[in-house]
Computed example of a mutant assay.
Amino acid sequence: MGVISGQCYSTLGSYNKPFFSSQTLRHSTPFSVSSPPPRLRTTISCRAVAAESPLTAKVGLKDFIHIDDFDKDTILKMLDRAIEVKALLKSGDRSFRPFEGKTMSMIFTKPSMRTRVSFETGFSLLGGHAVYLGRDDIQMGKREETRDVARVLSRYNDLIMARVFAHQDILDLAKYATVPVINGLTDYNHPVQIMADALTMIEHIGRVEGSQVVYVGDGNNIVHSWLLLASVIPFHFVCACPKGFEPDAKTVEKARKAGISKIEITNDPKEAVKGADVVYSDVWASMGQKEEAAYRREVFKGFQVDKILMDIAGSKAFFMHCLPAERGVEVTDEVVEAPYSIVFPQAENRMHAQNAIMLHVLGK
């Protein structure tokens, strides 16, 4: 049900002006102390005005929370737009400013260099202004409820981006916000990263569809986003991880049930990488898991991406990593610096993919 607000008016003789308006007060005839004011009959009438419910107001606007919220055609259109706008920016042309006069709040309960700089720079280059809100600026869910944060920021901004720990936080922001919400990362998934990865694959391999992507390491939020992309676009996805560190079983099942891509979960990285177009790695202990780092280094022995593993993958394989990388742990320095490594074009494409996402959710 919508909230009802009211506007009230007074009627004094032949006048019909807003009650307590500055004009009425400024120009009313002063009364002397010796003579009482005339008894005028004042009538106040109120007009009810229906306001939109915050849960139904997001008409025609779309959040970007999970990749599989969109169909294949929409994903590919966003990637095409990313290529188009990237080329424009690379040319030095700064005339395309679709976000002129618009603002975005960026909520960070997890710090990040790439996420902050890529979103803030991209939004600025396209004419907008981004506001950084760190962990101590809001203390979302602690100092102030997430639903209240969503509703307040919606009244200031045209867009909200959030990088948080709990996936429920991004769901609650999207539920209560009346402006589009973009998932900058949660413990469950990282959709903007995978869009940047897909863009990088198109640039270097020529396609995502029909390719073979082999992820080596922990079955984390990056893996979940690859699985959700595989629910929409057909390709061969393999996750090679130690036993006990497999990705979420429901997400794996969802990708398999979609019947679009070939999905494999294995504990043998050497077999997994054979014939790969992309060998992909990430840190073994993500933010919030650092106390497990020493234990994980023992468990993950044999899952390091080194030159031997890349040689097994074959000469056509590229190496990708979402960064930051712990060189000498999940990947060797030699691999990061090799000619087949495309980790830095991949990092740059965070901005270009996110620009396309922002353009899409704002209907530009």
Rank of each mutant, 00 (worst) to 15 (best):
G13H: 13
L126K: 00
K290G: 02
V343I: 15
N221P: 01
S231D: 09
Y215A: 08
L40I: 15
D197C: 08
H236C: 05
L185S: 07
I312C: 06
E334D: 07
S211D: 00
K110C: 03
G122C: 08
E100I: 05
V361T: 11
V329T: 05
S32I: 08
R47I: 10
M104Q: 05
S34C: 11
H236I: 08
V336W: 01
L12K: 15
V131M: 12
G259L: 09
E271S: 15
L12Q: 14
E298M: 12
V59S: 11
V208D: 00
T178K: 09
I4G: 06
S154C: 12
I205V: 13
R81S: 06
T266G: 08
D93A: 09
F96N: 11
E337W: 02
R94I: 04
N16Q: 14
A272F: 03
T178R: 10
V335D: 04
P54W: 06
R135Q: 13
I357V: 14
I44Y: 12
E271R: 14
E334C: 02
C46Y: 11
G314I: 04
D68E: 01
D197N: 01
S34E: 00
H360D: 06
M351F: 11
C322V: 13
R207S: 09
R97D: 06
D197S: 09
Y156K: 00
S225Y: 05
E337P: 10
Y340A: 07
T11C: 14
L12I: 15
S14K: 15
D93I: 02
K274N: 02
M358L: 03
D218I: 09
M310G: 01
I342A: 04
A249M: 11
C322K: 13
T74S: 09
F31Y: 09
Q7P: 08
K243P: 01
A50H: 14
H66K: 13
K72Y: 02
F235L: 10
A130R: 05
A240P: 00
P36Y: 07
V331C: 10
E271W: 05
F123P: 04
N355E: 05
S10K: 15
F165N: 10
A130W: 04
V238I: 13
F19E: 10
D268N: 12
A356V: 05
L125K: 08
F119C: 02
V283C: 06
K86L: 03
D311E: 14
M310R: 02
S225E: 03
V331F: 04
D306I: 05
K250M: 11
S45M: 08
Y15Q: 14
Y340Q: 07
S34L: 11
D63N: 15
L89N: 03
Y340H: 14
T103M: 13
F99S: 04
V299N: 07
L159G: 03
F245P: 00
K254M: 14
A82H: 08
M1R: 11
Q7K: 15
F319L: 01
V279A: 02
N355C: 11
T146I: 15
F300W: 07
R97Y: 07
R81G: 10
T178P: 03
S341C: 02
R135C: 11
G259I: 00
L61T: 13
A87M: 05
K307T: 09
Q346L: 04
Y9I: 13
R143W: 03
V335S: 04
C8Y: 14
S315G: 06
L40M: 13
V223I: 11
H66Q: 12
